[in-house]
Design a protein around this nucleic acid. Structure first.
Length: 414
DNA sequence: TCTGGGGTCCTAGGACCC
DNA sequence: TCTGGGGTCCTAGGACCC
């Protein structure tokens, strides 16, 4: 890995992405306070326009809460396929400037432009070209950070929003970091901030000067990394498409429209979640040995999770369902259930070997046919008899963190 | 009038084997 | 008969990111 001073990294953050896409798609929404929400009954604000943010609307708020803060708020149910499509096309623009593009999420990417500087002149030129093209083609604005590594590039793109450009050179790195609050660092959350503040560490300058031993004593192996972050050191490479590490788990959870205590209904949702997990695992060509069940109760605060590790790897929906059910059967539910989650982990790439027995083979062929039909006509067109029609609401195409603008991980878009 | 959903990584303790 | 240590796997829970 080249030393930091030899790399030039861009971090590009599409401002208020989902809300901005909606405002572009519908001119009536432009310059107005709008919020994008999920399609389910108990949803929260996913993203809001800057006009809404100025009125106190924040991501994660309940809809009623946001409307209390901003009565004129226009609420739009999100269309994730639209956002994924837009993001894919924007990432194509990025790749006109370097092949080394890493999508951090649907609206954030890193670009290593080290080897493109001789072609385009400078990182600032590239940043301006990208901004102009995204605005021209999509009407969207973005904030860009330019720095010697990913950590500082992301820090930079957060400094000026919307439509910002912030440059951190190796020379002025120390000056910028000295007064920078530690919570600006990607990786320092609320708890970590509080713990560091308790140690009288408030700024990156103070964090970088702190003795490593003090940090490792308090935070374990993260301690060393924290000191480096305070010093602005980050040697992690930009990992382009196709070279990412294999995914480690596949899961779905769902807050139910109403709290339920009826066991038959709970099992029905469990089967539905198992089918969602199974079909995605099969699309990824992975199978897993460990099934995890998560339950949140009606009071919101109490919850539990239990896992079971099997003798063999599975990815058929009813195998996942049976494992999840075996966990549920060991528990006496204390309250009505608010949320159910099923996750498959301990993954490996799937064998292509066909089962030995005819019945098993027939089952596999049936599952594959079902996956094919669902892939063509939309999830849930063909499903298990116990999944009552109408239970599965449309419009919820998930965007997992492993989402990529192209390639096998670009899932749930048919 | 309530508070989403998708992940990753780390830690700690227990079981088990050599 | 008692004692110790290292390694691996599993489970549960928490912090963090978008």
């Amino acid at each position: 890995m080249a030393p930091d001073s030899h790399r030039t990294i861009l971090h590009i953050d599409l401002n208020a992405f989902f809300a901005s896409v909606e405002q572009q798609a519908n001119p009536e929404l432009r310059d107005k306070p709008i919020a994008v929400i999920g399609g389910h009954g108990r949803t929260v604000i996913t993203t809001s326009s800057y006009q809404a943010r100025a009125r106190g609307v924040k991501t994660g708020m309940a809809v009623w809460e946001a409307k209390r803060a901003c009565p004129e708020l226009i609420v739009v149910v999100g269309d994730n396929r639209k956002y994924q499509h837009t993001s894919s096309r924007i990432n194509e623009i990025f790749r006109d400037y370097t092949p080394d593009v890493e999508a951090f999420s649907i609206d954030e990417s890193w670009l290593d432009v080290t080897h493109s500087l001789s072609i385009f002149g400078s990182a600032v030129t590239i940043a301006h070209l990208i901004k102009a093209r995204i605005l021209h083609s999509f009407g969207l604005r973005c904030s860009i950070g330019v720095a010697p590594n990913k950590l500082l590039a992301k820090l930079g793109s957060d400094q000026i929003k919307p439509d910002g450009l912030f440059i951190i050179t190796p020379e002025d790195m120390a000056r910028i970091l000295e007064p920078m609050p530690i919570q600006e660092l990607c990786g320092v959350g609320k708890k970590m901030q509080r713990a560091l503040n308790m140690m009288s560490i408030y700024t990156c300058g103070e964090l970088g000067r702190c003795e490593e031993q003090r940090l490792t004593h308090k935070f374990g192996i993260i301690g060393r990394r924290l000191k480096e972050m305070g010093q602005g050191i980050d040697l992690s490479p930009v990992v382009p498409y196709g070279l990412e590490e294999d995914i480690k788990s596949v899961g779905h959870s769902r807050t139910l429209e109403k709290d339920i205590s009826n066991l038959a209904e709970i099992k029905c949702f469990l089967l539905q979640l198992s089918e969602m997990v199974g079909s995605r695992a099969r699309r990824y060509c992975v199978s897993g040995k460990t099934v995890h069940l998560y339950v949140r109760y009606a009071d919101f605060f109490s919850s539990w999770g239990k896992q079971i590790t099997l003798c063999n790897h599975i990815n058929l929906s009813d195998d996942i369902y049976r494992a999840a059910l075996s966990i549920l059967n060991t528990v006496e539910l204390e309250q009505p259930v608010r949320l159910l989650g099923v996750t498959l982990s301990n993954l490996k790439q799937q064998d292509e070997q066909l089962p030995l027995f005819v019945e098993e083979r027939k089952k596999l062929y049936a599952i594959r046919a079902m996956d094919t039909v669902n892939a063509r006509y939309g999830r849930g067109v063909v499903t298990f008899g116990t999944l009552v029609p109408g239970k599965e609401k449309g419009g919820s195409y998930v965007i997992p963190p492993s989402w990529r603008p192209d390639g096998v991980k670009n899932i749930d878009v048919q």
